[in-house]
């Protein structure tokens, strides 16, 4: 019996070799089978995934060094709140100067002392920008990314703190799917099933939704990615920056 199994294994192995070598070497691989890094958008989040502002003068240097050390197309300083008392403190602008990037603030809400929101760091000044108010304390900002000369793609930042914000975003996700816009952001972890459920009902199933598995499984927030089938999630890496601040690099290929 053992001899028979071994024979089967040997036969299967040769079949595998034959089938594996029988293809035409000149044929182009099916889109998505091989990772084309020259068509890949690199999106970075710098965050502690708590929903609070982790950026202070003590970590501006460490954060900017982490940003300068990678070649991301888009960098998001998650929750870089601006204090508007005296003195006014804008962590995003301070980090942008050190990281040699150009900052755009995406507000979500206002407290008695702060504008709460995130900061997008671009490689160059942004000549045109318009934010969409999705719901109370929720905005979407479209970001055009030039991956390489002749390949410009659409991405957008949209983060969620409450169920209502997700439910009113249905049309935005539909539109993102048809326009092949890659939508990313942070989401309160307990709202992930709500997001998954909404997306499964509004499309015909031809979409990519990734909830990124960061090392802190119980972090209050998680990072998500949504796109049409033109987008293929390829890789995720996580690194420490300062204290609890992490750098999350997402690589997504535009097929």
């Amino acid at each position: 019996m053992k001899k028979q199994i071994n024979l089967y294994l040997i036969a299967s192995f040769f079949c595998f070799l034959i089938s594996g070598c029988s293809g035409n070497d000149n044929e182009e691989p099916e889109p998505g089978t091989e990772w084309d890094k020259t068509r890949t958008a690199r999106v970075s989040f710098v965050s502690d995934l708590t929903g609070n502002n982790p950026f202070t003068a003590h970590n501006y240097n460490a954060v900017s060094s982490a940003i300068k050390g990678n070649d991301s197309h888009v960098v998001i300083l998650d929750r870089a709140n601006v204090t508007y008392g005296t003195p006014r403190i804008n962590p995003g602008a301070n980090i942008a100067v050190l990281a040699e990037r150009f900052p755009i603030f995406v507000p979500v809400s206002t407290t008695e002392t702060e504008y709460r929101g995130s900061v997008l760091l671009y490689e160059k000044p942004v000549p045109e920008m318009e934010q969409t108010i999705v719901a109370d304390a929720c905005r979407m900002i479209p970001i055009t990314v030039e991956i390489k000369q002749g390949l410009t793609v659409r991405t957008a930042l949209l983060s969620f703190d409450s169920e209502n914000q997700i439910s009113v975003s249905a049309n935005l996700f539909r539109s993102a799917q048809t326009s092949s816009t890659l939508v990313t952001g942070t989401i309160r972890r307990n709202l992930v099933p709500t997001l998954e459920s909404l997306i499964s009902t509004l499309t015909d199933g031809t979409y990519t939704l990734e909830i990124i598995e960061n090392s802190a499984k119980n972090s209050e927030y998680a990072i998500y990615l949504f796109g049409s089938m033109k987008w293929k999630f390829r890789d995720f890496t996580e690194g420490s920056v300062s204290g609890n601040i992490k750098h999350f690099l997402l690589q997504v290929e535009f097929l």
Partner: peptide, 19 residues
Amino acid sequence: RDFTTELAAETGYFSAFGR
């Protein structure tokens, strides 16, 4: 130097630049 962003950092304001 990015004069606009340096001013934003110094003052705590939000900024925009037009080329």
